[in-house]
Design a protein around this nucleic acid. Structure first.
Length: 586
RNA sequence: GCGCUCGUAGCUCAAUUGGAUAGAGCGCCUGACUACGGAUCAGGAGGUUUGGGGUUCGACUCCCUACGAGCGUGCCA
């Protein structure tokens, strides 16, 4: 058990003895203090419960403290402060003991969840025939990290890349392909040629209704199984996938399956029929739509929106007037499949916040149809340029993901050229690739996912401060001590002594790893882990500066080496959970 | 118009979901043992948390209001 878990358990026992019971106890929390002056952990339980039970908080706290002094003996001391805070100061002996244990544990003290669940993680989901753009960084990197963390905590995770391989854009590509595909260019640079075709079709249909109709017809023919269109489509998908795989390899991202929109095509017609039969959908303005189930008051009903005269319907459209299906239909079929084939208990969609309305209605419909799984829209904000508006190229498009990666790589090369101790050009290049891509990933993961954030290449050129290279450098520093160590010391976690305050603080941070990782899944926020790693690295550098390791002897040497080793392990593990690797030298 | 998200140091972001004196990085200013890797460390200046009300022991966080930004708003995804 982690320290706050131990403290909480004893605290609950004492609270019960004081006559607090039932639901109220569930809300009792033990959290790290904001300021170490107040100890390591604190609980505001006495104040909260006293309010609910109309008792005096300090009185309740005093009663609890007496019992805690005894039950926490040897682990932590307890004090009452302010209006009724219970502050806990962990004893050095307990840190020593835990440091020894954590250092011997492959999981570094991080417990697995008690009930493993099957979680389908839907992330990245690029469109075929269009290159990935910056927006895909967020979904891809956040999704990969959540997948790794959930797996580490003991869940069964299925990573599904729900690619857009069946949508409207294909009508445009098919139309332009038939106008004149450049086979030589397709051979040379397939993605560029596909993009050219998409843009051609897109701009042609924007200006001209007739062309737009032609594009739609091409799509309908494809969806109805036309052999020629099907053949072109298959080539496009294959070529696109190759390009996508290359980027995923660079980002160290992987999937268990790629069940794109086309995979569900055959089920859609029957699905819509069953929605009608089940009373969920009906005809409206030529389309088949799902309307409100009347389950909630109009103000909160996702199928209604306020118009000029009262509430108007805002339905989920599952079959268009032209008979075609759209992403809502596919998404419903996808949920059905995931429940049926995988017995999913949770489905997480890592998708842009702008699709919130869509998911709210989609999830509501799923519940009405009897879906028991927990459906979560893991939403994220926009990446902004330096002017504070969404990042765009000069031409007005979203920058391509690969260009952004290469910019980061160029910046990292420069930095490596200036600072690296590596001589071999090949190693330097590998390091630059690692550092450059890590910097992007970490920038992404260290922000709160719901908020927009600013992409600033110049800031990343520096690779200083709160960045991935700072953490990687911390790891390298830990490792380099062991290369200089002349005789081997057995690090078995026994006979350790923490004397200096900075040693204690580093141990305090190391022991906290097991508390932080599960916290990420509470709100699906990897930035919690990212902040922790920065704080840990700062504690390490501070320790490193003040406490010579190799010049020390005996128990001090052993303790400091242990601190270095465990720090290296936690950094590597923690970064790994964010999808970021570490170099041995840099 | 309506709805969602948001507004925190000069800049970029945090703040354990209502807890104690709002924290980091960048930038700026002082310093660091020829040092186990200076991509580092120790310290300093910098804030009426957009303005105004309210709720309470306690508010960046919740409620109301004004201003400002981004996004969404029936057949794209």
């Amino acid at each position: 058990m982690t320290l706050p878990e131990v403290i909480r358990e004893k605290l609950l026992f004492e609270l019960e003895r004081q006559g607090v019971e039932g639901e109220m106890l569930k809300r009792v929390a033990v959290v790290p203090t904001a300021d170490l002056q107040h100890g390591d952990y604190q609980s505001n339980a006495a104040m909260m419960l006293a309010k609910m039970a109309k008792r005096n908080p300090r009185e309740l706290a005093t009663g609890v403290k007496e019992g805690l002094d005894e039950s926490l003996e040897g682990v932590a001391s307890c004090e009452i402060a302010g209006p009724g805070f219970l502050n806990f100061r962990v004893l050095e002996g307990e840190f020593v003991r835990r440091l020894g244990v954590v250092g011997q544990d492959e999981r570094f003290g991080c417990p697995e969840v008690q009930e493993s669940q099957t979680i389908v993680l839907d992330f990245s989901a690029p469109n075929v025939a269009k290159p990935m753009h910056v927006g895909h960084i967020r979904s891809t990197v956040i999704g990969e990290s959540l997948a790794r963390i959930a797996t580490f905590l003991g869940h069964r995770v299925i990573r599904d890349n729900h690619i857009g391989d069946w949508g409207t854009q294909f009508g445009m590509v098919l139309w332009a392909w038939k106008k004149g595909v450049d086979e030589a260019a397709l051979e040379e640079e397939p993605l560029r040629e596909l993009l050219r075709l998409y843009r051609l079709g897109s701009s042609a249909s924007k200006g001209d209704e007739g062309t737009a109709d032609d594009c739609r017809n091409e799509l309908v023919k494809l969806q109805q199984g036309d052999a020629e269109n099907r053949g072109i489509w298959e080539r496009c998908v294959a070529l696109s996938k190759e390009g996508l795989e290359r980027i995923y390899a660079r980002l160290d991202v992987s999937f268990d399956c790629w069940l794109g929109e086309s995979f569900y095509n055959a089920e859609l017609a029957g699905l819509v029929e069953s929605l009608i039969e089940g009373g969920f959908a009906r005809e409206s303005e030529g389309a088949i739509c799902v309307f409100s189930g009347g389950g909630s008051e109009p103000k909160k009903d996702p199928y209604l929106k306020k118009g000029e005269d009262g509430f108007e319907d805002y339905p989920l459209i599952v079959r268009k007037r032209d008979g075609g299906f759209n992403y809502a239909t596919t998404d419903i079929a996808t949920i059905d499949y995931r429940l049926r084939e995988w017995e999913a208990e949770q489905i997480w969609y890592v998708v842009d916040f702008r699709q919130e309305d869509h998911f709210t209605r989609l999830f509501d419909l799923a519940k009405r149809r009897g879906c028991k799984a927990e459906l979560v829209h893991v939403k994220f904000g926009t990446i902004l340029g330096k002017d504070g508006t969404p990042l765009k190229t000069r031409a007005g498009d979203l920058p391509e993901l690969e260009d952004v990666l290469n910019d980061a790589l160029a910046a990292a090369r420069k930095s490596v050229g200036e600072k690296s101790l590596l001589d071999d050009p090949k190693e330097q290049e590998e390091l630059a690739e690692l550092i450059g891509l890590s910097a992007i990933k970490f920038m992404e993961l260290s922000h709160r996912r719901e908020s927009d954030y600013m992409y600033d290449l110049e800031k990343m050129v520096a690779l200083e401060g709160d960045t991935a290279p700072y953490l990687q450098y911390s790891y390298v520093r830990c490792r380099s001590i062991f290369r200089k160590l002349e005789e081997e010391v057995e690090l078995d976690g026994e006979g350790l002594e923490l004397r200096e305050e900075r040693e204690v603080h580093l141990a305090r941070m190391l022991v906290r790893f097991g508390e932080v990782v599960p916290q990420v899944l509470e709100d699906l926020r990897p930035n919690v882990l990212a902040s922790y790693l920065l704080e840990l690295a700062r504690a390490y550098h501070s320790f490193f500066q003040a406490c010579p390791v190799l010049k020390s002897e005996g128990a001090v040497l052993k303790t400091r080496l242990t601190l270095c080793e465990v720090t290296a392990g936690v950094l590597k593990k923690g970064l790994g959970l964010l999808g970021i690797g570490v170099p041995e030298r840099m």
